[in-house]
Amino acid sequence: MSPEQDIPLWLALGVSILALLGAFLTLLGTIGLVRLQSFYQRIHAPTLGTSYGTASIVIASILFFSYVETRPVLHEVLIGIFITATTPVTLMLLGRAALYRDRAEGKDPVLPADEQADAVFPITSSRPHRQ
């Protein structure tokens, strides 16, 4: 932004609040990603950033550029749509892959701990636990 032209207060405040809110939500998501205990809990955390975190930063960008260029600038909407459409796909694939890997090692996360013995596959149970 060029310093010689000042922007109105409502725009500065609106864009600031939206950008801060989006960054804060995204930060919370990654804090959860680090601090939560199991993989299946962690898979929920990044969604904070990809739902309303992305949405509010995208809206902030649309607001600002629409004012500066004095015409509606909507191409950020493409990023919003793209993230909304792709995040569920990656998270679902990851969830299924994790479930598959856990089951292949004989630890079915769906069953409670005391029923684990029934879930052990004979072929894979002899394999040593690996990372």
């Binding site: 929920h44 995040t87 569920p88 998270l91 679902m92």
Partner: peptide, 9 residues
């Protein structure tokens, strides 16, 4: 999946 509290596995 978009809802943070739930995930489709």
């Amino acid at each position: 999946t978009s809802t943070p509290g739930t995930a489709w596995i």
